[in-house]
């Protein structure tokens, strides 16, 4: 039994075809799996390994490097509250404490209804707008306790059209029409040197030691 549904399996093959080596599709396929299932299950990784000619251990090793792939079930909405320096100074920790109280879970936990997973995260690059958070990786800036409660209320009551579902982050990249992807040639088969190499005049006979690791 396939993990990917029919449409996604077709997408998976299409994604693989964009790369000179199937293994290069590992990360996009992990995104696809997360999009379909909300998180990346063992079955998903086994299937990705099969599709990319790698082993499940390689897929998991690669995927688990990235925080945004989840390997256990998470809520429909990931709420990431920043407690790094700027936010900390402007009340990020208090915001997190409030969020824990409102949602009834500790940071890292998921609400019983499966709606929210709360995370305590490091800098999300919006220091000028502290304290800030992300919901399914969409920013909410200068968030006060009331703003937070309002936001949760909106989400619970279906008034949050601006928020995509968890796992849909990579949709943009997967929408590249077939045949328009770049870099279809494997590095070792490339006859012409990349521009930067040619410019520096080292292209001739250069042997790329770590060939596209």
């Amino acid at each position: 039994m396939s993990f990917f549904d029919t449409a996604n399996l077709a997408t998976a093959h299409e994604i693989i075809s964009r790369y000179p080596k199937p293994k290069s599709a590992t990360i996009p396929l992990l995104h696809l799996a997360q999009q379909q299932h909300g998180w990346v299950s063992d079955d998903a990784m086994r299937e990705i390994a099969q599709l990319t000619g790698t082993t499940p251990a390689e897929v998991k090793g690669t995927g688990s490097f990235y925080e945004m792939f989840k390997f256990h079930p998470v809520g429909k909405y990931m709420v990431n509250v920043c407690t790094n320096l700027s936010c900390q100074i402007l009340g990020g920790e208090e915001l997190l404490a409030h969020a824990e109280e409102t949602l009834g879970v500790k940071a890292g936990g998921t609400t019983a209804d499966g709606m929210f997973t709360l995370e305590d995260v490091e800098c999300i690059a919006a220091c000028t707008e502290a304290p800030c958070l992300q919901v399914n990786y969409r920013y909410k800036l200068r968030v006060g306790n009331d703003d937070f409660d309002q936001m949760i209320d909106d989400i619970r009551n279906g008034r949050a059209d601006d928020l995509p579902e968890h796992g849909t982050l990579a949709l943009v990249r997967q929408a590249i029409p077939a045949g328009t992807g770049a870099g279809i040639t494997a590095p070792e088969n490339a006859r012409e040197a990349p521009v930067w190499m040619a410019r520096n005049d080292v292209a001739e006979g250069s042997d790329d030691k770590d060939g596209g690791a």
Binding site: T55, A57, E58, K60, G61, S64, F65, Y66, E67
Partner: peptide, 9 residues
């Protein structure tokens, strides 16, 4: 036999 791998970060 890539059956062991670095996991996590």
């Amino acid at each position: 036999d890539t059956l062991i791998h670095f996991m996590d970060r």
